[in-house]
């Protein structure tokens, strides 16, 4: 009888442990659960398109400012509000003649943090 109690108790304990581990993993695998980060990236890194996206995983709604520079010239300076856990796609409109052979830099900032992504076009 004692050996049956030991085996059954172990199985029950393992099931309880598995449940805890599974739930902890599933929650923490989420991009937003107990996390605070943002990311900016070009929608298509393979070509010269400038469409980019900002994802807000800060845990609350934020206003992100973004500036676009062509070479040293600032051509766009805008702001966008992004809900917690949401992604905002942005398609900047810049005349193509301005872009040729230039470095186009997207500078996204919020609070005291800034992220920069850029493409060296025509290289």
């Amino acid at each position: 009888m004692s050996s049956k109690i030991i085996i059954i108790a172990t199985v029950v304990l393992l099931i309880a442990s598995f449940s805890v581990l599974f739930v902890v993993e599933a929650k923490n695998h989420d991009l937003d659960y107990k996390k605070a980060w943002s990311v900016v990236y070009f929608e298509n890194p393979r070509d010269d398109s400038l469409d980019f996206a900002v994802e807000n995983h800060e845990g609350e709604k934020y206003e992100y400012g973004y500036k676009i520079f062509v070479g040293d010239d600032k051509v766009i300076d805008e702001k966008v509000e992004i809900e917690a856990g949401a992604k905002q796609k942005i398609s900047p409109v810049i005349p193509s003649e301005k872009l040729e052979g230039s470095k186009v830099l997207v500078d996204v900032n919020y609070k005291n943090t800034e992220y920069k992504i850029y493409k060296n076009l025509g290289k």
Partner: peptide, 21 residues
Amino acid sequence: EKYPDFSKVYGSDYISIFRKN
């Protein structure tokens, strides 16, 4: 970021991805 041969296509506080031009 100092190297002109690369474009930075993805940036977060932890990971950066660069594409060689």
